[in-house]
Nucleic acid binder design. Structure first.
Length: 903
RNA sequence: GCGGGCGUGUUGAAAUUGGUAGACAAGCCAGACUUAGGAUCUGGUGCCUACGGCGUAUGGGUUCGAGUCCCUUCGCCCGCACCA
């Protein structure tokens, strides 16, 4: 029999589906293991060969854990709400649901071909009302909760009302006043804030959806705008999000990204009294450098600060208004990039609370309204931004650290001895900071404060294709929809774009009301549906709750999560927040959702080029291109093999090239190449379906892992795939010679056992460490050895394919069945490693100088007894040769295979 | 600017964590079998002025020993970016 991967793969994919081989059922007697992929947004372009990389890795690990006796939960679903389907709907009128479902069908068929061991009975789709019911439910819980700073926990809003009642702050308020009061405390709340407004998309965006002033989706410019929006009080959880990261098994770089994003900084708030004409105001600033207060020479307000209006004097009004108008027009990007220092004097003066000195109050866009209090004390001598401002507007600079030179630049380091600083003079900076804060607190001038960069998440989007809010407005007061009436399903609309008056698309829906009152017209953002999906997989069909207590208690949280690093400051923060909130309310039993996280690298494309002589239809091979003036043209990688162009296919590729002529090297047209992003426009997209057709899913899986370390980005190059394909064919030939099944029950030789057990040790160790590329290499080495030994023994081959089945499940199932097994290889046991075959002759020699161990020498197990003895003699000679060196002791180290010769 | 990471053949990479650098593949060269090959098998393949010598971006250091540790310089990638 030939290795017919097409038949084999179709057969076993059918078998797994029919037998529900990968169905996960809670079993108290068996330890659980939860392996999760970041579920995909089903885009119209379908999967390319880079997308399944992480899925293959997680599938290998899932299959490995099953063989090791774990009850594995390995689900898959779709993050199905999102902008592209909606943009398409606006252009074509096609309902996003139709597009989305078609894309999901395509994704599913592509995924199925790769042979994943998903439990598809647990599939979720975020756009399914039965699913988003629980997204809305969680929102209602957040609406009806507040964050108690004393307990650092979310608690029911009733607790807060009771507290207000006890304090006499509640009774007597109107319904509207009560609503407004609670709104300041709810975890999900409505509030006015500066938001990222994207005019092209017609919606607001969260901070992580904006990069360098452009929307991540679509790349449209984003501007700052003050709007009333639904928000989630993520910032309340800043400290816990930071602290609980310690115990997570994530990479340091990813943890750093989150730490950066949360941006904890310890400092203090200080009150400056500001005199504007006849009125005095208390303006609070935030600083991390309380020690530098003696060097304050001016104050600065953010242009959006509420203080601006109050602190602008009559003479300066015109100038300030002009400045504000100018600042408003700029996008965030222009502000950050414009290195030019701008600002305007407000006309009022502040009093330094420590020195009593009067300093001018300025307004400048270098101060951000969203951080701290939107107002700063400026210390030009020790802050480079204040320094630049002071130099531009000719404001005084007072140095506060002994010996520092501030004639050319500020001295920003937190280092040195204070001077010109009253009671702080003589202290080091490190002593002065707490001393200054202590002084400020004792004199009632302010207080120590920790500030976070993390802002609350803007939660409304002025779009159609998202979860509707379970909120309606009774006389303008937002009210929660009753829990029993969930889900609030998306209404039909005739068009998907905003209304002519700029209202969200839901304003087009007829009778978009609840109990006769209008419903909220915004929808929830993309991260709403993806924040708790891992919980829903535990109990996907439950209609009484997001997840039952028993299912949650069994599966707990995700043991291994694999996905891209692009979610570091979005999804991975929101999910952690969402989980902590549900934890506080007692709905889940773990405070962190994802224990271990691996970020797979990106697979880039390898583009090919042809070179056309300018003004002709003549193409020259890459080696000859320098002789002519040529233009480089991308050519479809699918008509190029090993950089050799299929000239006939090229002529048929595009009408322009129909009459192409070629100038060849050695009778072949060699293409140039480059590594670029995999995309349609570069003609370098490789479709996994094509690989499955030509080589099979087992080869694809093996090759993706063989390509290089999982976390690393690497280019896809189809030409290397022959190597792993050959490997599988050769494995097949260990079992089959033409039509004869040649496996015997003969006893294995020591050499064969050694080869097998070396492999078992390696597969086990490398798989545990997610080093899949070296595992594949180990399989190849073992196969080469077994071929060499002409080994066709069941005792060796059966464990071999059980291990290989985690990579290449289809072909291994087929061979396993040929060995006479009735059950799927999924239920086999991972073979046990016997040490005896790898420790023989392993020795370590420790060599000492004057009694102190200086180096060790380890000898390979492959050495014979004679070789070992000869090497030891060599060592002794080395010891004699080097003065004062002697071999002190000899230690046998099991498992070591190092082979050193010391000259 | 700040933070994290990286630099090894023609290419993807490996190196048991300080111990024979280039495993395993791809490509290339030669040979075998073939009507044929994008099939199969065998051998070779870091570089050089080749019985020797040199080689892990660069220059230095620690060490009996450095791809691995420390410092210098150069280059690349990722994240954040006026966060007071």
């Amino acid at each position: 029999m030939e290795y017919n991967f097409k038949e084999i793969e179709a057969k076993w994919q059918r078998y797994w589906a029919q037998n529900h081989t990968f169905k996960a059922v809670e079993k108290e007697s068996q330890p659980k293991y939860y392996v999760l992929d970041m579920f995909p947004y089903p885009s119209g372009a379908g999967l390319h060969v880079g997308h399944p990389l992480g899925y293959i890795a997680s599938d290998i690990y899932s299959r490995y854990k099953r063989l090791c006796g774990y009850n594995v939960l390995h689900p898959m679903g779709y993050d199905a709400f999102g902008l592209p389907a909606e943009q398409y709907a606006i252009q074509t009128g096609q309902h996003p649901e139709v597009t989305t479902n078609a894309n999901i069908t395509r994704y599913r068929s592509q995924l199925d071909r790769i042979g994943f061991s998903y439990d598809w009975d647990r599939e979720v789709r975020t756009c399914d009302p039965a699913y988003y019911k629980w997204t809305q439910w969680a929102f209602l819980k957040m609406f009806n909760s507040w964050f108690n700073p004393e307990t650092q926990k979310a608690e029911p809003i009733e607790n807060l009302i009771a507290k207000f009642k006890a304090e006499g702050k509640w009774d007597g308020l109107s319904e509207k006043e009560q609503s407004d009061l609670l709104m300041q405390y709810r975890i999900a709340y409505q509030g006015e804030t500066a938001v990222n407004w994207c005019p092209a998309l017609g919606t607001v965006l969260a901070n992580d959806e904006v990069k360098e002033g452009y929307s991540v989706r679509g790349g449209f410019p984003v501007e700052q705008k003050k709007m009333t929006q639904w928000q989630l009080r993520v910032s309340a959880y800043a400290e816990r999000l930071l602290a609980d990261m310690e115990e997570l098994d994530w990479t340091d770089s990813l943890k750093d990204m989150q730490r950066n994003w949360i941006g904890r900084s310890k400092g203090c708030e200080m009150v400056f009294k500001v005199q504007n004409e006849d009125k005095e105001y208390d303006v609070t600033i935030f600083t991390t450098r309380a020690d530098t207060v003696f060097g304050v020479t001016f104050m600065v307000l953010a242009p959006e600060s509420d203080w601006v209006e109050k602190l602008t004097s009559r003479e300066q009004k015109a100038a300030v208004e002009e400045y504000l108008a100018m600042a408003k027009k700029k996008t965030e990007r222009e502000r950050a990039q414009g290195k030019k220092v701008t600002g305007v004097f407000s006309g009022s003066y502040a009093t330094n609370p420590l020195t009593g000195e009067k300093v001018p109050v300025w307004i400048s866009e270098y101060v951000l309204s969203g951080y701290g209090t939107g107002a700063i004390m400026a210390v030009p001598a020790h802050d480079s931004r204040d320094y630049a401002f002071a130099k531009t507007f000719n404001l005084p600079i007072i140095p506060l650290i002994e010996g520092c030179d501030v004639s050319e630049q500020s001295f920003d380091a937190k280092d040195g001895i204070m001077c010109n600083s009253g009671f702080l003079t003589g202290m080091s900076v490190k002593e002065a900071i707490p001393a200054a804060i202590k002084y400020v607190e004792e004199h009632g001038l302010g207080r120590g404060k920790v500030n976070y960069r993390l802002r609350d998440a803007i939660f409304s989007r002025q779009r159609y294709w998202g979860e509707p809010f379970p909120i309606y407005y009774k006389d303008g007061i937002p009210m929660p929809v009753d829990e029993k009436d969930l889900p609030v399903t998306l209404p039909e609309v005739d068009q998907f774009k905003p209304t002519e008056t700029g209202e969200p698309p839901l304003a087009r829906a007829k009778d978009w009301t609840y109990k006769g009152y209008p419903l909220e017209k915004s929808t929830m953002p993309g991260f709403a549906g993806s924040s708790a999906y891992y919980l829903r997989y535990m109990d996907p069909k439950n209609s009484d709750g997001l997840v039952s207590a028993s299912a949650d208690a069994y599966w707990r949280n995700v043991d291994l999560y694999i996905g891209g690093t692009e979610h570091a400051t979005g999804h991975l923060i929101y999910s952690r927040f969402w989980n902590k909130f549900l934890y506080d309310l007692g709905y889940v039993c773990e405070k962190e959702p994802f224990k271990k996280l691996i970020n797979q690298g990106m697979i880039q494309g390898r583009s090919n080029f042809v070179y056309r002589i300018i003004g002709t239809n003549r193409f020259v091979s890459v080696g000859l291109k320098d002789k002519y003036e040529t233009t480089e043209i991308h050519v479809d990688v699918n008509i190029v093999h090993n950089d050799r162009l299929d000239m006939e296919a090229f002529r048929n590729w595009m009408p322009d090239f129909k009459n192409a002529e070629f100038e060849l090297e050695n009778g072949e047209y060699i293409c140039g190449w480059a590594i670029e992003k995999m995309s349609k426009s570069m003609f370098n997209v490789v479709n996994p379906d094509m690989i499955c057709d030509n080589f099979g899913a087992d080869t694809l899986r093996l090759y993706e892992m063989f390509l290089g370390p999982l976390e690393q980005s690497k280019p896809w190059d189809t030409k290397g795939i022959d190597g792993v394909n050959r490997f599988l064919k050769r494995v097949w030939r260990l079992f089959w010679d033409k039509d004869n099944f040649i496996v015997t029950d003969e006893k294995a030789s020591p050499a064969e056992l050694k080869s097998l057990h070396k492999l078992i040790a390696k597969v086990q160790e490398d798989t545990e460490n997610f080093s899949f590329n070296t595992t594949v290499a180990a399989f190849m080495i073992a196969m080469n050895e077994l071929s060499e030994l002409d080994c066709h023994k069941r005792e060796i081959l059966e464990p071999f394919i059980i291990m290989l089945s985690i990579y290449c499940p289809h072909v291994c199932e087929e061979l396993y069945q040929a060995l006479g097994h009735q059950e799927s290889i999924t239920y086999a046991k991972f073979p046990e490693y016997v040490e005896a075959y790898t420790v023989e002759n392993n020795c370590t020699y420790a060599v000492s100088f004057n009694g102190k161990t200086r180096f060790t020498v380890e000898l390979a197990k492959s050495m014979s007894k004679e070789e070992v003895e000869a090497t030891v003699r060599g060592m002794e000679q080395t010891a004699k040769y080097l003065e004062g060196v002697s071999i002190q002791k000899v230690i046998v180290v099991p498992g070591k295979i190092v082979n050193i010769v010391v000259k």
